[in-house]
């Protein structure tokens, strides 16, 4: 079970959080101008990569705030957490096969 450092409340058990998928996928400003393929890419397609992933979590049983986590999907190591709107952190490059 992960120990997630909420940028507001501090370290809390994974049970207090909900997962929100990959981060930095911005909702298109003018969806009508997108092709079906482009829209489907926004709604459905995620690379599901092995290595450090920037992802969103929400502290649903705590402060109810959304934030971003840089987490290695292989080792589960959390490299950084940062608030919504903050700059992406520098994260180590992973060279998993």
């Amino acid at each position: 079970m992960l120990l997630i450092p909420c940028p507001y409340c501090g370290e809390r058990d994974e049970t207090e959080f909900s997962y929100g998928g990959e981060a930095h996928i911005e909702r298109p400003k003018e969806p009508d101008k997108l092709s079906d393929a482009e829209w489907a890419d926004y709604v459905f397609m995620r690379p599901n990569s092995k290595g450090v992933l920037l992802e969103r979590w929400v502290h649903s049983h705590g402060c109810r705030r959304w934030f971003n986590v840089a987490r290695d999907t292989l080792t589960y190591k959390i490299h950084a957490v940062y608030k919504m709107g903050e700059k992406r952190p520098r994260v180590p490059k992973t060279d998993y096969v």
């Binding site: 409340c9 049970t15 207090e16 049983h61 402060c63």
Partner: peptide
Amino acid sequence: AGQCAQSL
């Protein structure tokens, strides 16, 4: 004492 937290 004096601290609060939301949890389960």
